[in-house]
Write a protein that binds this DNA or RNA. Structure first.
Length: 430
RNA sequence: GUGGAUGUAGCUCAAUUGGUUAGAGCGUCGGACUGUGGCUCCGAAGGCUGGGGGUUCGAGACCCCUCAUUCACCCCA
C-alpha cells in the first residue's frame, strides 16, 4: 500500500547530508586513476543476458538466481549488469579498442545489481569502482591493479590493509589440480556436508570455501593449487609476490581463496581491511586471460578488480573519518523589502544574480520573513557573510557586510559590493 | 534461499501485569525581539504505533501472516 513511499528493498537514497562522502571518494578515484594512467570507460547498465552467462560460467547460481534479468518489448533478454568486467570486455571488442596503444587501461564507476538478501554494506543496487588492464600478460599488470586499489584506499586513510592472494593456474595446469582435489575429496565423500557433496559434482574449487567444521580436516589436508602450477604460472605468481615484497605490501597467500567466477586464471586476490570481520573484504579481483576469447575475440589477457564503494564508505564511517568540508554559501543577501516593496525586492535579486554571475555562492531567502528569521536562516545554512538590502541602503548607496563568524560589520559602497565580497571570500589579490 | 533480533513523530528514544485523549529531547515553522544570527523562554505543526488479520470489554504491548531493517549463514561480481 505505501509502496509508493518506500524504496525497493536493498536500494538506498544518497541524501544531501551523505553526498559529500560520495563526492570525496569519487574525487579520490579520479585522481588516483589519472596518476596511474587509467582512462574512464562507461558502458551500459544493462547488457544482453548472454554476455554474462557466457563469461561467468554455468556452475554459479549467481546468474540463475541473483541477477535482474528481463525481456524487453522487443523480446530481447537483458540483464542489469551484476559486475563490470564483461561489459568492458565487450566494449573493448565492439569498438576495436585493441587497435589503440596496448595495454589498454580502464576504470569504471557506477551501479551494479544483484538480487540477494541485503545486509549492511551489501545491497541490491550497489556502486562499484573497478579497473581493467587488457593486453598485458605479465605479473607487473597484476601488481599495478593491486597497487591502484591499495593506493586509493591509503589516500582515503585506510592503510590498514592486507592483500590475500592465490593462484588458481591456467587451462594447462588447472585440470590436473582439479583432479587431485576431486580424488582427495572422493575418498571421504560420506563425511562431507551436504553443500560440499554438491560442490564436488558441480564446482570442485569451491570445496575450499566451506566453513563447516565437519569438512575442516579434509580441507586442511587438501592439495594446494600452488603446488600444481605449471612452470609459467608458477614464475608468474613468484614474480608478483616479489613485487609486493619489494614495495612492502602486506600480503598473505590464501590457499583457500577461490573466486566465484569461471573466467579467472592464475592470480586471484582480495583486499581485506583489518578489524572489520565479515565486512572486511572491500575489493576482489584477478586475472582473466580467457575471457575475451570466450566472447569471440582474439586471445587477449586481462586483469582487474571490482571494489564495493558502499563498503568502503561504511569502513570510513566506522573509522570515524570525515570528508573534507564542501564549499558553503559565501554570502546571504537578506531583504528588508517585505511584501509591500516589490521594487526593493527586485533590486535585491539584481544583486544576488550579479554575485552568482561573478562566481560567488550567493543565496537569498524568499522575501516575506522578518529580518530576524532571515538572519537565523542565514546562520543555519552556514553563510560566511551576510548583507541586508533595504531602502536605506539603496538610498545611501552604502551597505553593511557582516562576517558571521566574528560578528564584525564592514561598510561597503553598493557599487563595489560584488568586488569587495569576492575579495573577502577569496582573500585580497596581491 | 535458511535461522535469530528489531520496527512508536523527519531523527534519537519513552509509555506500569493489556487500561482513558501515545509523550520527551533534537530538528522544522512561528512568537518574545514587526531592520540583525548563535543563548534563553513560549507556542504550533508533525503519528492509521510499518501493513493486514486474530485474542480481549479494552492492544503500541499478546498470537498469526506480511513488509522492511539488521546480524549470522548461503553466495560473493
Amino acid at each position: 500500500m505505501d509502496l509508493l513511499t518506500r524504496r525497493p528493498r536493498g536500494t538506498n537514497d544518497v541524501l544531501p547530508g551523505e553526498s559529500p562522502r560520495w563526492l570525496h571518494i569519487e574525487d579520490r578515484i579520479r585522481d588516483v586513476c589519472g596518476r596511474f594512467g587509467f582512462s574512464e570507460i562507461r558502458t551500459p547498465i544493462f547488457e544482453h543476458a548472454d554476455l554474462y552467462t557466457r563469461t561467468s560460467g554455468e556452475t554459479s547460481d549467481i546468474l540463475e538466481k541473483e541477477t535482474y534479468t528481463f525481456q524487453d518489448r522487443g523480446r530481447r533478454m537483458l540483464t542489469l549488469r551484476p559486475e563490470g568486467t564483461p561489459g568492458v570486455a565487450r566494449a573493448f571488442l565492439e569498438n576495436g579498442l585493441g587497435s589503440g596503444p596496448m595495454p589498454a587501461k580502464y576504470y569504471y564507476l557506477g551501479p551494479m545489481f544483484r538480487y540477494d538478501r541485503p545486509q549492511a554494506g551489501r545491497y541490491r543496487q550497489h556502486t562499484q569502482f573497478g579497473v581493467e588492464i587488457i593486453g598485458a600478460p605479465g605479473p607487473e599488470a597484476d601488481f599495478e591493479v593491486i597497487m591502484i586499489a591499495v593506493t586509493f584506499l591509503r589516500d582515503l586513510g585506510l592503510g590498514s590493509l592486507a592483500v590475500h592472494l592465490n593462484s588458481i593456474g591456467c587451462p594447462a595446469c588447472r585440470p590436473t589440480y582439479r583432479e587431485a582435489l576431486v580424488s582427495h575429496y572422493r575418498a571421504a565423500q560420506e563425511e562431507l556436508c551436504e553443500d560440499c557433496r554438491r560442490r564436488l559434482e558441480r564446482n570442485p574449487l569451491r570445496l575450499l570455501d566451506c566453513k563447516n567444521p565437519r569438512c575442516q580436516p579434509l580441507k586442511d589436508a587438501a592439495p594446494r593449487s600452488v603446488n600444481y602450477l605449471c612452470p609459467e604460472c608458477q614464475s608468474h605468481f613468484r614474480a608478483l609476490e616479489g613485487l609486493l615484497d619489494r614495495f612492502g605490501i602486506e600480503h598473505h597467500i590464501d590457499l583457500t581463496l577461490v573466486r566465484g567466477l569461471d573466467y579467472y586464471t592464475r592470480t586471484v586476490f582480495e583486499l581485506i581491511y583489518h578489524g572489520l570481520g565479515a565486512q572486511g573484504a572491500v575489493c576482489g579481483g584477478g586475472r582473466y586471460d580467457g575471457l575475451i576469447e570466450a566472447i569471440g575475440g582474439p586471445p587477449t589477457p586481462g586483469v582487474g578488480y571490482g571494489m564495493g564503494l558502499e563498503r568502503v564508505l561504511l569502513t570510513l564511517e566506522r573509522e570515524g573519518m570525515h570528508p573534507p568540508s564542501t564549499r558553503g554559501t559565501d554570502i546571504a543577501v537578506l531583504s528588508a523589502a517585505g511584501e509591500e516593496h516589490p521594487e526593493l525586492r527586485l533590486q535585491t535579486l539584481d544583486l544576488v544574480y550579479a554575485m552568482r554571475w561573478a562566481g560567488l555562492a550567493a543565496e537569498t531567502d524568499y522575501a516575506g520573513r522578518g529580518l530576524r528569521q532571515q538572519m537565523r536562516w542565514a546562520d543555519r545554512i552556514g553563510a560566511r557573510l551576510v548583507t541586508v538590502v533595504g531602502s536605506e541602503e539603496i538610498a545611501s548607496g552604502q551597505v553593511k557586510v557582516k562576517d558571521m563568524a566574528g560578528g564584525t560589520e564592514t561598510q561597503v559602497p553598493l557599487a563595489e559590493l560584488v568586488a569587495r565580497v569576492s575579495e573577502m571570500v577569496r582573500g585580497p589579490r596581491t
